[in-house]
Design a protein around this nucleic acid. Sequence first.
DNA 1: CTGTTAGCGCTTTCAC
DNA 2: GTGAAAGCGCTAACAG
Lengths: 336, 336
Amino acid sequence: MQKSQVTIKHIAQELGIAISTVSRALQNHPRIGLKTKERVFEVAKRLNYVPNPAAILLKKNKTNTVGVVFPYLQEEFFSQAITGIEDVISAKGYNVVISQSKDKLERENRAIKSFISSRVDGVIASISAETTQYYPFKELENHGIPLVFFDRVPKDVAVNKVRGNILEAAFEATIFLAKKGFSRIAILNGPSNLEISNERLEGYWKALKSLNLPIVQQYIKSTDLTKDSTSKKMEELLLLPEKPQAILCFNDYVALFAMQSCRQNGVIPNTDIHFVSFANLPITAYLDNPPIASVEQFAYKMGEQAATLLLKILESNEESEIIPEEIIIDTELIIH
Amino acid sequence: MQKSQVTIKHIAQELGIAISTVSRALQNHPRIGLKTKERVFEVAKRLNYVPNPAAILLKKNKTNTVGVVFPYLQEEFFSQAITGIEDVISAKGYNVVISQSKDKLERENRAIKSFISSRVDGVIASISAETTQYYPFKELENHGIPLVFFDRVPKDVAVNKVRGNILEAAFEATIFLAKKGFSRIAILNGPSNLEISNERLEGYWKALKSLNLPIVQQYIKSTDLTKDSTSKKMEELLLLPEKPQAILCFNDYVALFAMQSCRQNGVIPNTDIHFVSFANLPITAYLDNPPIASVEQFAYKMGEQAATLLLKILESNEESEIIPEEIIIDTELIIH
DNA sequence: CTGTTAGCGCTTTCAC
DNA sequence: GTGAAAGCGCTAACAG
């Protein structure tokens, strides 16, 4: 029971023909006789032949594989996106290899290194909460590997991006809270190296301004997305003389952590303080008391778009200079 | 900016030495002069040399990659296990490629096919809820690819397995409920093609017997793990003239679905009907009203063990006949 | 210590 | 239509 190493050579021998003929037959080359093809396919199947991708890669210098680095696979937002990516990618005969950074720069780097050494054709990435520099991704560029950023895109860099219309969503969410009658609206934001954090903040600002509400610095907090950090910032908000009446959270997980922290401090979420968050994850469906609204970001669709953009780049003329593209997906505020 | 194709040939030319010398230097071969090595490494770094894995594979016929197929990556039980696997595997210089079956036989098959064609060295698998036959995995055997089953192991087949001591856990959980004073204990089990479902059932039976409680057929339900199926079975339990007082659930997700279904039918979970489940996932920490207890299965440790077993097989003499091994990890009932 | 050479499995000119 | 042969990047005898 050792590794079956059936090669086209075996097929050729069995049939008494040249290996080049077998190769062509297997590729459905037009100039090969129909009968020959049939015989080749029959023997290939019978022998359990599986082409050796290494040999093909060596020859063609193309792995037909794209790499994906996301912070957490278990977050539904990302896992839905991965499904979208996989569906598009595999329909085109490519494979996907998935890595998670767990929001650690070091793991992100390792993933990128491994993508380079395994010669993936392209990469889709959502940067870790620790990533403050574009640098690690520069390596991919050096090796000529096309890159599409997803959701968590780096700022101030001309790169391919697919992301939600977060500014608009934050604006709407804030307006929604104001219309509910709340004037003291806080924001529990993500780390400021993420452009999507800044966009939330801008949307929040824009809304407050348009409502003629004051911008209170103490109501603006950012967490590193961990439970500890989030609880700490939430407690700071609870200690303010004028507690916020409502909080816009970076995502559902931040909202859940914050709501837990409230409960531990004797504050009843969505009664004493109302929560709105981003992502609209299925997890909220399990809760007796979910955030009162959440921004649906259509992760699956975003994944599809990212994959489509990457494939477009891969299949464009490699020599042509490519100008970075930015795709923005509209969101929708879902009221629970 | 095209794919940099720096090869050892370039390094050899640059230095005016033979490519074999470069190859050996890069591998730290003992018989290469220290100075030569230094020069080779210097040039390699400067030229941004990355070894071509395809060429190595073609030569050595070893990808240093293991494949993992799990039902759902977003379930913490599996994602924790993957982290355990990754940590062990990457410490040994192997790579991991991850696939999810989404509990669909067809996706599972696709993943296995892809593992075969990409020539992974070994596979770790947790079978889908739809998989009733060992068959799809037989293909791996045909290609001499070692396989370790994880948690969801097929029944009646001599294969490598790493799993929790589910029978014991179900026994203890049932005893726990009985000690709480409940005599009408139901079980919302998983599909019967999963051995771990049968073990839960056996543990449950064993406990009831030891307690001299009757085994009531109407209290034994199995779901296919989807929300719909679980809700349906839960409603059947609610319609019984003698509703159960407590329910042992296949896992936390089944418990959450069942608890939702209770609420929708005016039954208060953990007040009217008490829940105990398997997995002890972090998700339960977000709930105001989690199951009263959950069986911690130590997914990370299970992942480590599975990876260790697979590596042991990979690194054993390939010719030696391997007898399947079964590793059983003890569980712990966590009371919330 | 280093160089020469064959060959891993496959594709692809270039012949016929 | 099919075959012969070169070569992708690398490793590992086999020579020195």
